[in-house]
Amino acid sequence: MARYTGPVCRQCRREGLKLYLKGDKCFTDKCPVTRRNYAPGEHGQGRKKLSNYGVQLREKQKVRKYYGVSEKQFAKYFDMADKMEGIAGENFLKVLETRLDNVVYRLGLASSRAEARQLVNHGHFLVNEKKVDIASYLINTGDEIEVKSKSTQSAKFKELVEGHQGSVPQWLNIDTENLKGKVVAEPSREDIELPIEEHLIVEWYSK
């Protein structure tokens, strides 16, 4: 399935909550979810009771859109998590959290995951001092992520440094002055702020 290229705010409205796909706009009164908290389309205001299938589907789609991954990638990550020791649902979310684009966003080096994905694809980041331009690259504990020295002089990253609030998850450390971050632990379930019922996704893939 091709990547969605339409208005991203429609995706948030479809799921009925903020997925933080638009960066700074999501934190203002201009956020469409705040102004029109119902699904898009002419029948969007009509509330329908979902079947168990529909509830599971919506949960899967919500998480997929939140992290910005394709259906194929999403299924691949679940298969990977299902083979790991521990609880499949929690392992699945941990795998999604360790994508490079998500780590860049979590470090505050991009205003949204979509922007993080674009910056990674354009080669602005190093992982353990080596250039990595694959947004889906999975980061491990102990890895160091930094903005390439040539890119640190750009207005974009200078703006990010000035506006950085210094709040990152406990499994990450950030050196704002040098635009460097480090993964100090595995992400925990409590680090994920979006309300997710991962057991519904497990049920979806267990059919």
Results as ranks from 00 to 15, higher is better:
5 T>D: 05
157 F>E: 08
163 G>Y: 07
145 I>A: 09
39 A>Q: 05
127 V>E: 13
195 P>R: 13
203 E>L: 01
63 V>R: 07
33 V>E: 06
114 A>E: 14
138 L>G: 05
198 E>Y: 11
15 E>L: 01
202 V>M: 00
90 E>Q: 15
145 I>L: 07
122 H>F: 13
116 A>H: 05
159 E>C: 02
143 D>C: 07
131 K>N: 08
70 S>E: 00
108 G>N: 09
47 R>P: 00
22 K>T: 10
192 I>V: 15
31 C>E: 09
6 G>A: 05
77 Y>N: 09
108 G>V: 10
27 F>G: 12
51 S>E: 03
170 Q>S: 15
48 K>R: 11
172 L>M: 11
102 N>T: 15
160 L>E: 04
46 G>M: 07
138 L>W: 01
33 V>I: 14
31 C>G: 06
150 K>I: 11
4 Y>R: 06
41 G>Y: 00
132 V>K: 12
21 L>S: 08
31 C>P: 02
192 I>H: 11
59 E>H: 05
53 Y>E: 04
158 K>M: 08
64 R>S: 07
109 L>W: 06
87 I>D: 08
31 C>K: 04
182 K>P: 02
52 N>V: 11
11 Q>P: 03
152 T>A: 07
149 S>P: 15
14 R>A: 09
14 R>P: 03
25 K>I: 15
33 V>H: 03
85 E>I: 02
32 P>S: 04
142 G>H: 01
155 A>F: 05
205 Y>G: 06
138 L>Q: 15
202 V>D: 02
90 E>P: 06
83 K>Q: 13
97 E>R: 08
53 Y>G: 02
180 K>D: 03
36 R>L: 11
1 M>G: 14
168 V>G: 08
132 V>L: 10
